[in-house]
Design a protein around this nucleic acid. Structure first.
Lengths: 195, 195
DNA sequence: CCTAACCTACCTAACGTTAGTTAGTTTATC
DNA sequence: GATAAACTAACTAACGTTAGGTAGGTTAGG
């Protein structure tokens, strides 16, 4: 299926050079067809982008849904850790996916309809709500310090995003070690008890 | 000075729509001159961009240099907090600056010469080294948990970046509260002592 | 069983627009 | 009157997009 291959290549280009920096000629050339042939499968450049973005959003939701389900039986603190690591590993496994995700969220193209941005925000909102619920459960169980669960969910998300951005910018290999290190700071703090 | 105004407007456009998404006609129109007149001040679009990027890099270095100097007398843990908050406030004070900074670091334009990216990396490397030194000092003073100082510096930087990205994406107002909340997580951890 | 119609996926050619850039000319300032 | 900074006009190249045509495979009718 050419439409599928177009999406794959388009994802790569959009992630790498951005929407404005990618030309249809680039995409067409990469799969060995000519530029106008793209229009047999997608009605416009934006249409192709939206198709790619749609699968990306789907993938994003699925990843944290799965991560949430996976640690369901764990105590709250371990579950948060699992969530954090699962999401980190998911995006670390595919650098192209990661770059596209960041671009779509942080710098969506000007042509991008508001609906797509809203979809992203809504998705992240749902995710944050779920994480906050885990925080609350952990506090009730006495395994987590009492505090504002919503803010803590945001803080954890910030940490994840910062880590992912760092992983995108620096291409070194020991990301997972740093991911765990980062988690430990969040979990135990950096301050000594008597400090 | 038109050259100055050009840089200011260009910064705004580059931050908002990206390098590829910005046309010289846009920039020229915004300050009330015609497109070719730009060439009286900058030899090309890339030249203008590099001028903007250069000031941005300068500003970036200056901000963390000042933040480091400011808390010099503080104990290590308070100094780290001061560093974190100062940097956060610095970028939060100017959203345009923030957006350009993120774009330059995370998604530099394809035309952007490697030297600029390297300059950014070097600067951040210096910053991380300074932060790591503060961590080490704090550990020697017994005010911070012993641990891998370089990794901890990276973790703190990730946290800052994540927070800034979040601030860029969500335009709500209580950023400073969330910044402090995020810091407290890092400082004290989220886990109870007996958890 | 043949053939006529149709569909899909590609092609070439070309469209109109806009991009960054250059050349040559005018205006204003010191 | 020289110099800097603006202008108009125009160039080339690239963009997304449309039109029209062709080859191959599938379907329907006599």
């Amino acid at each position: 299926m050419t439409a599928q291959r177009l999406q794959e290549i388009a994802l790569r280009f959009f992630a790498d050079k951005g929407y404005d920096g990618t030309s249809l000629a680039d995409i067409a050339g990469a799969i060995g067809i000519k530029k106008p042939s793209i229009y047999a499968h997608y009605s416009s450049k934006l249409d192709l982008f939206l198709a790619v973005a749609d699968t990306a959003l789907h993938d994003y939701r699925q990843s944290w849904r799965r991560a949430l389900d996976k640690g369901e039986a764990l105590p709250a603190d371990r579950r948060l850790q699992s969530l954090f690591e699962e999401m980190g590993e998911h995006f670390l496994a595919d650098r192209t996916k990661l770059a596209f995700w960041i671009r779509l969220w942080v710098f969506p193209p000007a042509d991008c309809p508001a609906g797509v941005r809203d979809a992203f925000q809504t998705l992240t909102g749902e995710y944050l709500a779920e994480v906050a619920a885990v925080f609350r459960a952990g506090m009730e169980q006495g395994r987590l310090r009492p505090g504002p669960a919503d803010d803590l969910a945001h803080a954890l998300f910030s940490l994840l995003v910062g880590f992912l951005i760092r992983a995108h910018a620096y291409q070194d290999t020991d990301h997972l070690r740093l991911l765990r290190q980062t988690w430990d700071c969040f979990m135990f703090g950096i301050k000594t008890e008597d400090g």
